[in-house]
Write a protein that binds this DNA or RNA. Structure first.
Length: 547
RNA sequence: GCGCCUGUAGCUCAGCGGAUAGAGCACUGGUCUUCGGAACCAGGUGUCGGGGGUUCGAAUCCCUCCAGGCGCGCCA
């Protein structure tokens, strides 16, 4: 990446200036090269001189000049300028820009891929909604975030595995089984009461009826067996919803396997051995306060039943110690914030560096219809499912909406507004650019134009060069997104790339009587298609050849 | 009470300690006999929630206050 090359050269030039005694030999700050927001300031800029000014006790303008005078000539860069109060600005040559077109064509579908992950194994766990009901919009957001992040990390050179943690044990499942059993009995005409805090949703009635028709009275006295069947139904439904969003998991990990396969017992033994388990008031506690957490946590209840936390500790030990992932990333809703510190403490207690686990806390999605708020709880039953929202608003519009906002920002999903705006959704703007290019390439094919010998040095208008400038940003966007675990940069970048293309399109005729120019622009357009397709694919969205 | 997140244009949101704080939507005007008008070009709006502080420089970092969301279970 040219950005890193420039940063390195700034550092070399600064050292050179120091060795020539032009500036004092102070420690150099970490060099970063940025993109100025004002294009008049060039393509890249360094603030090295400004940062050095204090320690060097010199005017930053003088420092900048000293650094610039120590620069070796850089291929591809012209006009290294010093601008008040001390910026060093770089401008890429038109020629260098043009040469990026064949580079992109050569990279093809892998354009933008990086090697910063060095093949490290990363597991990313997301959605993991309880299989006690259908997915809601919040789960949709998590699904898109996790999926895009997985794509980004894979593009950045990590070996990524996507996992769904299935909570198929514990008290919620018991409640689910009892609720379903009641609906099942009711469907069979029995007059039974529905559990007070059971899952009251309409879908439970439907599944109860289905099971009653299929199995008759087979499970009259077996709520947990019935529940197990119902749970698989729910999982199938979840899988379908996720597939509709384009999200497919590599593995589905069952909480129950933690008990069946002795993983729970293993970590309990480990924690005891390390001295982090204490018995108090008939329960077993993890003494996380000794590891800096603000409170101790129960591992095994007075009833002898392990807590969710105990299972979660075992699950994460399995990820990081047994299955050997270098890193684990969890995407959790803000309502799970309270788990983070104790899980990290547990990892520390088990001898695992907790920095290998990143927990992304995603702020919740609140659903509104106009001014009216809609609750999302499965317990209360009155939910609007992800499926309904996708049908109402459209999958790609939803995807783009979910991805455009950072995980930190809380989302008001107004169904009225979303529907109203779906036709104006920026996602179509981006996809349209791709489809337009596909259409141009079709035309070229119809006319039997072979542009493999196109001469990119003919690309000279500002619109053409600006389009290339946008394209070379993709690797930087991927790097930043991977580094910060922030997929939301992609939709913004996608819009800018599409905008650069649309502007180019109105100014420059691609297929024309001028054959050499036609061929050069076909190359440019083909490269743009690669960039747009890659960006859309990273976001997990459809890449239409026509719309 | 304590902790985490958020507060930026009318609305929805970007903004990696740097240059004149940006985009989409909405609004107004213009562009088209041509490769897809789901397009392009132009117009303008900001106490960056308030107040202090650090810095050559703060929307960005620190403190404090205000407002909203979430969390602080032998629930998951």
């Amino acid at each position: 990446m040219i950005k890193h090359e420039l940063a390195k050269l700034v550092e070399i030039a600064a050292r050179e200036a120091q060795s020539k005694d032009l500036i004092p030999p102070t420690a150099l700050p970490e060099v970063s090269v940025e993109r100025p927001q004002n294009p008049e300031h060039g393509d890249y800029a360094s603030t090295m001189a400004l940062k050095l000014a204090r320690a060097a006790r010199m005017n930053p303008m003088v420092i900048a000049s000293a650094i610039v005078s120590s620069f070796p000539p850089i291929p591809g860069v012209e006009d290294i300028t010093v601008v008040a109060p001390g910026f060093i600005n770089f401008r890429l040559t038109d020629n260098w820009l043009r040469e990026q077109v064949p580079v992109i064509l050569g990279a093809g579908a892998s354009y933008g891929s990086l090697d910063i992950g060095k093949g490290q194994r990363v597991q990313i766990e997301f959605v993991s909604a309880n299989p006690t009901g259908p997915l809601h919009v919040g789960n949709g957001r998590g699904a898109m975030l996790g999926n895009a992040l997985a794509n980004i990390l894979a593009a950045a050179g990590y070996s990524v595995e996507k996992e769904y943690y299935v909570n198929d044990a514990g008290s919620q499942i018991e409640v689910f089984s009892n609720s379903l059993h009641a609906r099942y009995l009711q469907a069979l005409g029995k007059d039974v009461a529905f559990p007070e805090s059971g899952y009251g949703g309409q879908y439970m009635i439907e599944v109860g009826q289905e099971l009653a028709t299929e199995y008759g009275e087979k499970y009259l006295d077996q709520p947990s067996q019935l529940g197990a069947i119902g749970l698989e139904r729910m999982l199938d439904m979840i899988r379908v919803d996720l597939a509709n969003l384009g999200v497919v998991f590599d593995s589905w990990f069952r909480e129950s396997s933690i008990y069946k396969e002795g993983k729970y017992q293993a970590i309990m033994d480990l924690l005891k051995e390390k001295g982090y388990v204490a018995e108090r008031e008939g329960a077993l506690w993890f003494t996380s306060t000794s590891l800096g957490d603000d409170k101790d946590n129960v591992l095994v209840r007075t009833t002898g039943v392990p807590t969710y936390f105990a299972a979660d500790a075992a699950y994460h030990y399995d990820k990081l110690a047994e299955r050997g992932f270098d890193r684990a990333i969890n995407i959790w809703g803000a309502d799970h914030l309270g788990h983070v510190s104790r899980l990290k403490a547990a990892l520390t207690g088990m001898g695992i560096d907790h920095q290998r686990l990143n927990v992304i806390i995603m702020q919740l999605v609140t659903l509104k219809r106009g001014a009216e708020a809609v609750r999302l709880s499965k317990r209360t039953g009155d939910i609007i499912t992800l499926r309904e929202v996708l049908e109402e608003v459209g999958a790609d519009a939803c995807r783009f909406f979910f991805l455009s906002r950072s995980a930190d920002s809380q989302m008001d999903f107004d169904l009225e507004l979303a529907k109203q705006q779906s036709n104006e959704n920026p996602v179509y703007y981006v996809q349209y650019a791709h489809a337009r290019i596909a259409s141009i390439l079709d035309l070229a094919k119809d006319r039997d134009i072979d542009f493999s010998d196109g001469d990119v040095s003919l690309l000279a208008t500002e619109a053409e060069l600006e389009l290339i400038r946008q394209m070379i940003l993709l690797p930087e966007v991927i790097e930043m997104s991977a580094h910060n675990l922030e997929p939301h940069h992609l939709p913004h970048y996608a819009q800018e790339l599409a905008a650069a293309f649309h502007s180019f399109y109105t100014v420059c005729r691609v297929v024309s009587e001028d054959i050499p120019m036609t061929k050069a622009r076909l190359k440019l357009v083909q490269a743009t298609k690669i960039g747009l397709a890659r960006t859309l694919a990273l976001m997990g969205m459809t890449v239409p050849e026509s719309m």
